[in-house]
């Protein structure tokens, strides 16, 4: 047989390929970089970034109850961080932060508590100012119920805060009416943030 010992490769002798350039890069490029840190990717014409006023003293006992991870995270908060005044809830609280906001979530005894504070406001000139009919922390507040979740929202320190209480059982009175959410809101404690006193 014609069997010369051809060690090695099958010589892929390729000739005359129409595509002759480099292995040019046709990968889909990354999206155009957008500001992802302090300048949030929102339409600047509608975004107003407020300058929070920072309380002068931190609630030490409340701060101490937070986990190390939560304390680390709150130090990055661009707004004053308010937390619930309940050691048991503080110990399991998860704090997250964004370029303009912080959030806290904690759950115990069939109740989920969520706090949120942001310094970025969306300005829609055609929407007139409005004041809440209720009051929390000595300020006008809106209190609303959303599918069994009771929420209070108010302005404080140049920041828009909201507090949401969600009960596992719909019959749970803590999520019925304004009393409990108002009481929780009134007892919130300031524990710091990136511009605050430590």
């Amino acid at each position: 047989m014609l069997a010369p010992r051809l060690v090695g490769i099958l010589a892929l002798v390729v000739a005359g390929c129409a595509e002759s350039g480099d292995a040019f890069d046709r990968r889909p490029p990354k999206p155009t970089p957008t500001a992802v840190t302090k300048a949030a990717p929102v339409d600047a014409r509608k975004a107003l970034v407020g300058t929070p006023s920072w309380p002068t003293s931190v609630d030490g006992p409340a701060l101490k109850e937070l986990s190390e991870a939560a304390r680390r995270e709150l130090a990055h908060s661009p707004v004053p961080v308010l937390v619930v005044d309940e050691p048991k809830l503080l110990r399991t609280a998860v704090i997250t932060t964004g370029p303009h906001w912080y959030a806290l979530s904690t759950k115990d005894g069939g109740l989920t508590t969520a706090l949120h504070g942001t310094r970025l406001a969306h300005d829609y000139p055609e929407i007139p100012p409005a004041r809440g009919r209720s009051e929390v922390r000595g300020r006008p507040a809106f209190i609303t119920e959303n599918e069994g979740i009771v929420s209070a929202s108010w302005l404080e320190n140049g920041v828009a805060y909201s507090l949401d209480l969600e009960c596992f059982e719909r019959q749970d009175t803590r999520c019925q009416g304004a009393a409990h959410v108002t009481a929780i809101a009134n007892r919130l404690r300031y524990v710091g943030g990136e511009g605050g006193t430590r």
Binding site: L120, H122, D123, I127, P129, A130, S153, L155, S162
Partner: peptide, 11 residues
Amino acid sequence: KQNIANIGSVY
């Protein structure tokens, strides 16, 4: 839920 200028955080 958004923070609306001169209102606060609302749906």
